[in-house]
Design a protein around this nucleic acid. Structure first.
Lengths: 350, 350
DNA sequence: GTGAAAGCGCTAACAG
DNA sequence: CTGTTAGCGCTTTCAC
């Protein structure tokens, strides 16, 4: 096992290796009868084509790379899982590239040897036919490397110059979150979100913040600077930011819009520590659709990350196999308000 | 770029392709002078060896596979992240295999086409030099397939016959959790844990449960059957189980040992809904070291999953390159009690 | 529709 | 220490 070559299959089927190759690749130019013989022989011998040999001869590896800034964070791995399924269902193997996030003090990522090695070595080994970039910001030199590879690339969640990108409308997502609070009757709404080290171009934070600003402006509500707090995308960050916002008893908001569910968890805990009841004293809404939110009762906007991954994967498959019919790729990714117990109308006179 | 072959490097360096190959592979049998020339030429041309060509010629792909039952759950992806870093630092690429968990009604996994395809196709393409199994239970036929591959395999967190396995001492982990509660003075301790679909052999649940039983027995405390509740390893499962245990006001425990942090979150919420204060009315301890626990104030036993992944990866590297000196592999994986706010001494007369 | 033959780009003896 | 020579196992013209 593992030592069954195409040669053996050819002998057993009584045809040439060329024909075995064609038959097993599903090429049209093989008679039904021959195809059957070949398939039977392959099955009997337990033959499966060698990835390396096939790759060398054809120039196609039947593998794609998924590149992520974090390998252990829910949002990213959920996108990855969605993409992985789509890709493996289409017969591709998946190679995982960890592109460590930029540091703010190293915007080019050039000072990060792992990141440099990824672009200067790993990718150049040409182990994959295409690449899926998840929430990544690339430096110009890195983009140049990618395009020198001359392979299809698709980005998810963060636009890249010259790369087809699929993302939810982050502005609309943020506006929807704030609108939910406004419709409940809130006017004093704080925002916690913001700075992420990997976020070189600050796309998502900027858009979410912009959605907040826009929705508030449209509602004719002036925003108190004190109500806007920066936070990393973690519970700890949200906690610290919320402590700051909520500690001013005079001008305490009645609601908080957190730019992620993880941040919202931190806000939830800060509120509890300050003996603020949720939602009676404070409404909280997050963004993402993180599973723990269901048991914490967090209202959120689910952006269906697995589906985002699947959509990106499908787009890549289209590029990889233009001739094959693939499931269609939606242009706009959907999101969905999930109202739970952390939001309600503000108490009158609060 | 991407079209730079070893030939070009050889010409530029004025040596044969064989020498280029040797020099770049770091073989000893190359003069320092030649090596420098070759490296300079390779660098100038931006040459990186082709993974497929090298793999076909040498029989070694310089890639390893990581196989996981879940691609979107914190514990598994954190193990994966730890392994990934170790592997890429050693120059290997990582291919990700998703081995969908067994269903209880399909213990062999034979009715799952994706899983079948993984073992009957993907792995047989021999894209990787070795395999890391994370928390996986394999059917006999699947194990047979693996060993027919004749490649090194290392398992993490769940023993496989004939496969070197690295895992924390789950019995000791569970005993440590219960001991923590006992030392605080609790005697009425409930257990929530248990059934997982993928857990064919029920290793982890069984061991954690056994740890609970043992610790309780050693303390001479009889266990109330009502205090043992099965749960999936999710917040929802923990919530449901806790509602059941805590609803009996007569025989309510003063502490709950949850077999995972996610379960513990559910217990936390159930307690809150029943107006039980934590830890005054109820102490809760989980297992894992999940990050949200820090902000929720959950006492837990951190089992350092990233480190588990790293250790497994290192063991695999040892097997892959016996000649190379690798970082040592600890025999026993460490764990650590992290006491936070969810545990305290029971109230007197509670 | 099928076979023969020529590589794909590299590595690994084998000489020297 | 280095070059020559065979392949690795498959795919793909090019004939027929």
């Amino acid at each position: 096992m593992g030592d069954v070559s195409i040669q053996k299959v050819a002998e057993l089927a009584g045809v040439s290796t060329a024909t075995v190759s064609r038959a097993l690749a599903g090429k049209q130019s093989v008679s039904a009868q021959t195809r059957e013989k070949v398939e039977a022989a392959a099955k009997e011998l337990g033959y499966v084509v060698s990835a390396t040999a096939s790759g060398l001869a054809s120039g196609r590896t039947r593998a794609v790379g998924i590149m992520l800034p974090y390998l252990d964070r829910w949002f990213f791995t959920t996108v990855m899982a969605g993409a992985h399924r789509e890709l493996t269902d289409a017969g591709y193997d998946v190679t995982l590239y960890h592109c460590e996030p930029h540091r703010l003090n190293d915007p080019d990522g050039t000072a990060n040897p792992r990141r440099a090695r990824l672009f200067e070595e790993s990718l150049l080994r040409r182990r994959v036919d295409g690449l899926l970039l998840v929430t990544l910001s690339l430096a110009p030199a890195e983009r140049a490397r990618l395009s020198s590879l001359d392979k299809p690339v698709v980005a998810i969640d963060r636009p890249q110059p010259d790369v087809p990108t699929f993302a939810v409308d982050n502005l609309a997502v943020a506006k929807a979150a704030v609108s939910h609070l406004l419709e409940l009757g809130h006017r004093d709404i704080a925002y916690v979100g913001g700075v992420i080290p990997y976020d070189l171009d600050f796309q998502v934070p900027v858009l979410r913040r912009a959605g907040y600003d826009t929705a508030m402006a449209e509602a004719g509500i002036p925003v108190r600077p004190h109500w806007i707090e920066e936070s990393e995308y973690t519970s700890e960050g949200g906690y610290a930011a919320a402590r700051s916002i909520l500690s001013d008893r005079e001008h305490r908001p009645t609601a908080v819009f957190a730019a992620s569910d993880e941040i919202a968890y931190g806000v939830l805990m800060a509120a509890r520590e300050l003996d603020l009841r949720v939602p009676e004293d404070l409404s909280i809404i997050g963004i993402d659709g993180h599973p723990t939110g269901s048991v914490l009762g967090l209202t959120t906007i689910d952006q269906h990350p697995a589906q985002q991954g699947a959509v990106g994967a499908r787009a890549l498959l289209h590029a990889l196999e233009p001739e094959v019919e693939h499931a269609p790729v939606p242009a706009r990714l959907p999101f969905e308000l999930i109202a739970r117990q952390s939001t309600a109308a503000p108490r009158v006179g609060a």
